[in-house]
Amino acid sequence: MKKEIIIAGFGGQGVLSMGKILAYSGLLEGKEVTWMPAYGPEQRGGTANVTVQISDKKISSPILKFYDIAIVLNQPSMDKFEERVKPGGILIYDSNGMTRKPTRKDISVYCIDATDKAIEMGAQKTFNMIVVGGLLKADPMVKTENVMLALKKSLPERHHKLLPANEEAMKVGMEIIKKEN
């Protein structure tokens, strides 16, 4: 098993922590993992992305040009990474703020309206866990219980009261993701 994933969006959306939770979940399942952020002059409101790899074997390059899965959470990210999904791969996008739909026909495309749902739920900070839920529905690469364990291990104890809301968000994400192509 080898998954090469890019998660891209606005700074502040929780892109990096989403990647960390996935990498941590992989670690808990005994996989090799890498988490590599684009740490350039990004800022709040600018673009942010992270490359996560989960593999049975040793991972060489932490930086990739093409991906099995791209999660794009804003238009600049879709413009940059849609073309870099490998044929047969997966693209997941949130339609909020997007000016167009993905155009690739040789990949699976999923839409998840996580931004709207998070606002509706009154829990905007769980946005990224809705997306993680959607991802795991599209590709169950790690077990949900390990995602929760990873979240518990990476959150400081004072935030552990937020774990149930995050678990709920993940479930919601699994329900609302729609396959379009």
Partner: peptide
């Protein structure tokens, strides 16, 4: 370098 410094691994 910045890659090895910023990257997370096991």
């Amino acid at each position: 370098d910045g890659i090895v410094g910023q990257m997370m691994e096991k």
